[in-house]
Design a protein around this nucleic acid. Sequence first.
DNA 1: AAATTATGTCAGCCATATTGACATATTTTT
DNA 2: AAAAATATGTCAATATGGCTGACATAATTT
Lengths: 185, 185
Amino acid sequence: MADIISHPRGRVTAARERAQAQDAEPVPASGSEADDIIELLFFAYRDFISDPDAILADFGFGRAHHRVLHFVDRHPGMRVADLLEILKITKQSLGRVLKQLIDSGFVEQQPGALDRRERLLFTTAQGGELAARLREPQSRRINDALAGLSLEARRQVAGFLLAMVNETEREDVAGRVYENERPRP
Amino acid sequence: MADIISHPRGRVTAARERAQAQDAEPVPASGSEADDIIELLFFAYRDFISDPDAILADFGFGRAHHRVLHFVDRHPGMRVADLLEILKITKQSLGRVLKQLIDSGFVEQQPGALDRRERLLFTTAQGGELAARLREPQSRRINDALAGLSLEARRQVAGFLLAMVNETEREDVAGRVYENERPRP
DNA sequence: AAATTATGTCAGCCATATTGACATATTTTT
DNA sequence: AAAAATATGTCAATATGGCTGACATAATTT
């Protein structure tokens, strides 16, 4: 593990030293592999989602808008109910941000051709542009992080992330994520 | 990529079909590798953090408490300033949850032995127990997700996550995450 | 005709984040 | 010793994005 990155001495170990200086209680058992990944996931996600925040602020939007815009852009024709299932929020919560995105011309609704109760969601040209702008720094970050890895390793990384999803939804998620890559029957 | 998981037909492709039935505009370009990972990260993290929520609710705590408790437990003797830097929130935001954790006996403060302005943070026995309880489902999820992978692949997964962290902080994060694993000089 | 479904909306509540201003104790600098 | 800087805490106001509950409308299914 130590070869992943160098561990310079410095403030990095300051907390340990302070704790030791304090009363010499032993520092707790070292992190297991899973414990390390708990923290890595926190830090990775923290920085991953920080990228788009500055852009969003220019439009008066927040992360909730980003999530909606992203999924509508990538999966056009999605129903409101699909979005609720994906985001795992209530329709009241979604309603507010969706309304703002529609009113400001980033998302539009069309009644379903088959079932006219449905409001199918699409991004407008403007919405597609913003979605792409928000995606760009995240894609760059991911590509940089994958840079040294073989195709096999990349698959393992993606497989790990997919395996982190609740088993009951894993196939749905895989279907959604990879839907555009699957050859149509 | 298609071999990672089977892609059953069904509602998974429903959005595409609805969009197609709608007006036959072509479905947008397929997701690049990075685009897939953007979504996988969202779903993985969504479920990863959902585990502890039920437990926290029993104590009247939220995710903010979880984050504080986790870092204080894993890095005892941490200063308030360290926590602010890690969580990237303001001291006012931290103040509230920290006060609640202290008042309810999960975290305690000790003035620093070297610099008595500092309030070094430690979990109490009760706090350590709760931190462990919260960690358990997350560790299990991670171990399950790593299950099929070689040691090499596991390193690559951890390396990927670390590489997702802002370059400017990557060494600090690595130091923090792996601090207990590094042999002391 | 009745029941169900998909969606929207009003109203209020809560958790967690923000900015800005100011207070206290302690350490460091001059 | 006095002044400046640092670590922390706190008051007050505000914003975002969740939540529950209740109710309404349109369209589809039974």
